[in-house]
Design a protein around this nucleic acid. Structure first.
Lengths: 250, 250
DNA sequence: GCAGGCTCGATCAAACTCGTTCATGAATCT
DNA sequence: AGATTCATGAACGAGTTTGATCGAGCCTGC
């Protein structure tokens, strides 16, 4: 990427988020923090952003809280996401589900050569400026509360593609191994996603074992792998293993 | 290949990708980096691209988005966008094209009860938090430099929907009334958009009359209306009127 | 108000890019 | 045929960008 392009993207990223930390920007754009600092200095001199300690603010909407920049990550959930990201080899394609779980996976994909397909608007924002990643957005109706795309357009788009990996979130896994979800409207999309992937990986921290949900997404047999953590209910894990699902502890 | 041909191709490549590095262009065109540098120097002198360290950027010519330097005709372009937004009645659906022109229309839609369909990521960002608006995103490959979605997924999504209004941007309208675009890759998407709308409205400020572009988007007869401003070339306007297009001055 | 962790700018070496120069070969002119 | 023009690629020194490192300064929690 050209230096000028990178600087344009920094400005764009700040417009989207209101603010950005040096470390975050460096990760997003795949360069060192030193380079980001130099860019910020230059852009500040040009009046295209406001430099602050730890990062920069967008120049117009500069009243956003900067606290988010140093937000603390939920360490455990992040470990699961990191483990999931390690499963994928460069050059492969993956499908990221709706929800924060999938967003966390996306955060670990920066700088890698991958094709990412998603209906998750938070993932789109996260990876929008990452040149390395070929990003494909599924169509659909914007569901603001969940920052996602749903509906028949999404399902139709899924029928047009096929990927190596699917990373699926869930509201909970029932004791018999069935994967559940709390919102009906997402279920047809999740089913279509399962059909569009070779490997279906479920991401679920220990609080999802066992868990509830009104809508059944799929049977355990439809999963290839479950990434979870130690502390997840033994019986449910056994049920999954029996169904031929590989259970990985992050 | 002739030098002129090669230079045209460089300009075309930049329009498609937004920017290009010397090394990348040399590889693409099968010549040495020295030759590319000489070409870039010459094209820069002709104003057909912007030279930057490491390569070149596409020049702001067509309905080219997000180059940050478009504060020039902002006032006039905004008047056209406002006029366009007034055409739509609450409860109706509209399709917004790629580009800054469509983004400006979106900025005038806040708070209204409408269904907005788009493949423009800037429009998505603009309307994402507007509860009143039902927002539908077309699928597709993310084209970062233009903040848009393109490709067969986009076209396929367009086949699934139909809207009342389409607001179309352009790089220029030829003297015979043909609507042109500067980037080939957008054309199939724009054609699919035209098919998916009852009323096709072209938005074009006076600098687009007459204008050029490598790719033909549609014949004047396919348009329902053109919103422009006084000062736009009379002859071209007459040509449009003759083709049955209503020409509105903002 | 103190300690520990971050962030900062400065500095340096390595990698990259730039414009210039020169030699080569093809096409055109004399 | 010989001379001239022109585009091209290789080579080179100068200038630019980048990432790593380091000491100084700033923030936060105790």
């Amino acid at each position: 990427m050209l230096p000028k392009q990178r600087q344009d993207q920094i400005v764009r990223a700040l417009r989207a988020d209101g603010a950005g930390g040096v470390k975050v920007l460096a990760g997003k754009l795949g360069v060192s923090e030193a380079t980001i600092r130099r860019d910020l200095e230059q852009l500040h001199a040009e009046g295209r952003l406001t430099r602050v300690y730890g990062g920069a603010l967008a120049v117009d909407g500069g009243d956003e809280p900067f606290a988010d920049v140093n937000a603390i990550h939920a360490e455990e959930k992040d470990r699961i996401a990191r483990r999931a990201a390690e499963l994928v080899t460069d050059g492969e394609s993956l499908l990221l589900d709706i929800g924060t779980t999938a967003l966390r996976v996306a955060q670990h994909l920066h700088g890698r050569s991958l094709t990412v397909v998603t209906s998750n608007l938070a993932v789109l924002e996260e990876l929008q400026n990452d040149e390395q990643i070929e990003l494909i957005v599924l169509g659909g109706f914007v569901r603001r509360s969940y920052r996602s795309l749903v509906g028949y357009l999404t399902e139709e788009s899924l029928r047009q593609i096929h990927v190596d990996w699917l990373f699926l979130g869930t509201s909970g896994v029932r004791p018999d191994g069935r994967v559940m979800d709390s919102t009906m409207i997402e279920v047809p999309v999740k089913r279509a996603m399962i059909k569009a992937a070779d490997q279906v990986v479920l991401l679920a921290d220990r609080t999802k074992f066992p868990g509830h949900g009104v809508a059944r997404v799929c049977e355990p047999g439809e999963l290839s792998m479950v990434v979870t953590e130690s502390g997840a209910d033994e019986a449910t894990r056994a049920q999954l293993t029996e169904a031929g699902v590989k259970v990985v502890l992050a």
